[in-house]
Amino acid sequence: MALNTPQITPTKKITVRAIGEELPRGDYQRCPQCDMLFSLPEINSHQSAYCPRCQAKIRDGRDWSLTRLAAMAFTMLLLMPFAWGEPLLHIWLLGIRIDANVMQGIWQMTKQGDAITGSMVFFCVIGAPLILVTSIAYLWFGNRLGMNLRPVLLMLERLKEWVMLDIYLVGIGVASIKVQDYAHIQAGVGLFSFVALVILTTVTLSHLNVEELWERFYPQRPATRRDEKLRVCLGCHFTGYPDQRGRCPRCHIPLRLRRRHSLQKCWAALLASIVLLLPANLLPISIIYLNGGRQEDTILSGIMSLASSNIAVAGIVFIASILVPFTKVIVMFTLLLSIHFKCQQGLRTRILLLRMVTWIGRWSMLDLFVISLTMSLINRDQILAFTMGPAAFYFGAAVILTILAVEWLDSRLLWDAHESGNARFDD
């Protein structure tokens, strides 16, 4: 018995066209964080690309023209004298008006014999932002004059995390709450300039795509075929072959399989920071003279006294001054041990922890910024005066060393310790 099946006739004509040209192939790229070699397709503007294995951002879609970056830099340069030299806060102490600005706080630190601690604050609040705007201006002028731009481009990517104007702005709020127990506070004209400078700096850093600047100024022929001998440069993120001198053909720094002496430098910085954190938390970090009496505060006791007036601000200072430094030390110690013992479990967790400490590390400088600003506000000789204690130097040095330890660690070593050939990683 035959089955009668109805015929289905399409209502619209289906047209099949042959592909007349070869589909576009992607360029081969190595991930600078996990060293995976993959094919990167062509990316349009405002599109980002991520590593298929570790999800690290390979290409950032946010990109401004150099002219727009230069305009932002010149605007920031105009704001800087007002943000640093004009009063941020006014207080009335014992019937006398006192003005506080950024430069005055750094000068008070240096004047009291601790120039190293003052230079830490100076670099993060004044030096690094000033280098940022002058570097962008150098790129703008240098591109037109045919100057060598490689050193500036190499420095810009590392400079971003040292620009800490946003953290200093939080420190202004913390210092205001600490001082309000002794005097009446009012915002100064410099505060508005400083807030504007923070906003412009944040926007500029978020749109400063150094890798795209490398592509514009020093374009290189990408690798179009897969080759395990391809290496990625950690300076400019170019994937290719080393030249005859073993250097990256684009930025001219040595092109090595792994960062040289990464573990040794990381261990040295980490152990030194552990040693410095002990006096930083045991010795007094601030000293207040009130009517001839002397009151010393460690980091913890200062947080407890701050909690009596504002528990939320005390929580912020606790996280930045105690929780973050010790968390960074514990995480980095764990990561280094996992590399030495070739741990194969929990790779995803370790990668996330490394990215976390990379982002939060700079916030530990908050305590030094609060001390710097408070020193310029309260300084009335023996009637009422505020000065920093010996722990300030140890704390600042420990924070900087932990930042350097994270920067010096080559994250690809975590993958080397893991089993080879993993296309995915999980716990």
Results as ranks from 00 to 15, higher is better:
T334Y: 13
V331Y: 14
L306T: 02
P284L: 03
I126Y: 04
V370W: 00
L255G: 10
R158G: 14
D243A: 10
T202G: 14
L368G: 04
F318C: 09
C34S: 01
A56G: 11
V275R: 00
E161I: 13
L337M: 11
L282G: 06
A83G: 14
L130Y: 04
Q108F: 14
L165W: 05
C124E: 04
I400D: 03
E157Y: 08
D427Y: 15
Q7K: 10
Y28L: 15
I136A: 06
W64S: 14
G61N: 15
C34K: 00
L89F: 08
T334I: 10
P325W: 07
V121T: 05
G127Q: 02
P219D: 08
P41K: 11
S206V: 15
G361T: 11
P219Q: 09
E215A: 10
A73Q: 03
A268N: 07
L335A: 11
V189S: 10
N310S: 10
F369P: 00
R250G: 05
V170F: 15
L40H: 07
V232A: 07
W415S: 09
N209Q: 03
H46I: 11
Q7E: 10
H261V: 03
A73K: 08
C54V: 00
I339E: 10
H237G: 08
F341A: 09
K12Y: 10
K328T: 00
I14M: 10
D99G: 08
F369H: 05
R355S: 12
I351E: 10
T327C: 13
M103V: 06
K178H: 04
G315L: 06
F318G: 08
V189I: 14
D367L: 00
I371V: 09
E212S: 14
F238I: 04
D410V: 00
N310P: 13
M76C: 03
L377C: 04
Q104A: 14
L37G: 12
T298M: 08
C34Y: 00
M76S: 03
S301D: 02
E215I: 13
S193Y: 01
I274S: 11
L306F: 07
V125L: 09
G235R: 02
D181L: 01
S372C: 14
Q345I: 12
H237V: 07
G188K: 11
I403N: 04
L271M: 07
Q29C: 10
S372V: 06
V170E: 03
L93I: 11
A187F: 13
G105N: 02
F425D: 14
R258Q: 03
I253N: 02
L263G: 08
I303V: 10
V329G: 07
V324E: 04
S364K: 02
M72V: 07
L335T: 12
I58G: 03
I172L: 12
L94F: 11
A280F: 02
T224L: 09
V102L: 14
A223W: 07
L37R: 10
S411L: 07
I43G: 12
I316K: 03
R294H: 05
S420E: 11
R53T: 10
G20F: 09
R226N: 09
A397E: 09
S309V: 02
L132A: 12
M164Q: 10
R258T: 03
P81T: 05
D381I: 01
E161Q: 15
C343I: 11
L40F: 08
Q264L: 02
T67Y: 14
L414I: 08
L191N: 04
M76F: 04
G171L: 00
P6S: 10
Q244F: 06
A73N: 12
I383F: 13
R59L: 14
E161C: 15
T117C: 05
R260V: 04
G190F: 01
R245V: 04
F74E: 03
T202S: 14
Q29H: 11
A307W: 10
Q33L: 13
P242N: 09
V170Y: 11
